[in-house]
Design a protein around this nucleic acid. Structure first.
Lengths: 211, 211
DNA sequence: TTTTTATTGTATCGGATGATACATAATGGC
DNA sequence: GCCATTATGTATCATCCGATACAATAAAAA
């Protein structure tokens, strides 16, 4: 077993509380006092566990990804590309406007620091967002290869479109849009989804190119 | 004429320079030293002209709106709703990825402070974004009344969709997406646009509901 | 027990932050 | 010329920032 005095607080709980602070105030707006107070610990405990403020933030982002894993899993497991797109956007509409717990509306990866005094913060956020876009792109590439997407469709553009839509919805959620509002947008957004070009799925829509 | 010593700097130029700083570092990341240095003035001049940091920021936002006026004017003057949507999204793809001058990519209204220690900042940004959404909504309401949009289309949702799309594209632009990347997304996004339901415009697409 | 290792609470560090006091400078009005 | 008014430059304010020094504490290892 590990030697030394055992840690007196739960890392996961502390990260959850730090997440709320970063989410509400942004990376730079969240002061060390805000964070330690919310986490219920003193500065040395924070620095011992996470190195510094940026280290804590990165740990929070990892945990945030964990919270979104369930949604991404269901998206990746969807039977076809359009269902995947629908699950993705509806999931975003759901959680981004949901203030169930103490988390603010919106998405941590969008609103905690697109612009910052320290450029590392926008960069790491962009990496996390890009990771999700990559998952979608690779899934759509497989779909296209398997004939579940028209050959005319461009997986890169489709993934970019969905992520842009999702991020935009998060911006609106942060300003007060409801899940219902966002669901209406999602429904419209899915009308752009490419169908036809393959006999796999029949649709009332005519042929159209995706890109 | 106004009495007293004349101002020794140009308000517009100073606002442009402050805009760059807020854009790059965000509201909280932009320090007074950053701002005064970029603006080429001393703190007392800044406070005399704008009241405080938030006052300067609000003035910058007004000027930012002015920069976008040309685009919004062309959108409002477009001959039909779909052209308006296209001009809007293409304009956003254009300017948000364009680093022509010293401005960072993206949109000031999105990246300068979605989350902040002072909630007034996210609020005022949301107001500015909502203003543009309102312009689109009112235009589409007129279009629908005039028969340039199907009766089944929902102007509120259409405006919300476009703004979400635009904001999402700005997020991607801030992370390095090119105008070309965004144009491909725009093309796809416009496939969701409702047509038919009225004989005004003929289209190869079949009837579909917008909401 | 003694040693080693790690975490804790208290108290505080140097520096940056947003904002001003104050004297000086430059204009119009009289 | 003189005054009222406004802007400017220098210097500085109190406060908050992120981050630590240090001694005490609590566990495993010897």
């Amino acid at each position: 077993m590990r030697t030394g005095r055992p840690r007196g607080f739960c890392i996961e709980t502390a990260l959850d509380r730090a997440m709320t602070v970063f989410w509400q105030k942004g990376y730079e707006g969240a002061s060390l006092s805000d964070l330690t107070q919310a986490m219920g610990i003193n500065p040395p405990s924070l620095y011992a566990a996470f190195g510094n403020k940026e280290g804590l933030f990165r740990a929070v982002l990892e945990r945030y990804d964990g919270r979104r894993k369930e949604l991404m899993d269901s998206v990746m497991a969807a039977p076809d590309a359009k269902t995947a797109a629908q699950l993705f956007l509806e999931g975003v509409a759901e959680f981004s406007a949901d203030t169930n717990g103490r988390n603010p509306p919106g998405c941590l990866l969008v609103q905690s620091g697109l612009s910052c005094s320290d450029q590392d913060i926008p960069d790491v956020l962009a990496q996390h967002r890009a990771e999700k876009e990559k998952m979608l792109r690779e899934r759509f590439e497989r779909d296209r290869k398997d004939g579940n997407l028209p050959k005319s469709a461009n997986p890169t553009v489709l993934a970019s479109y969905l992520v842009a839509m999702a991020n935009g919805m998060c911006v609106q959620a942060s300003a007060g849009a409801s899940t219902k509002d966002l669901m209406a947008v999602v429904k419209l957004a899915l009308d752009a989804w490419p169908v036809g070009d393959k006999p796999a799925k029949k649709s009332a829509r005519t042929l159209q190119r995706a890109v």
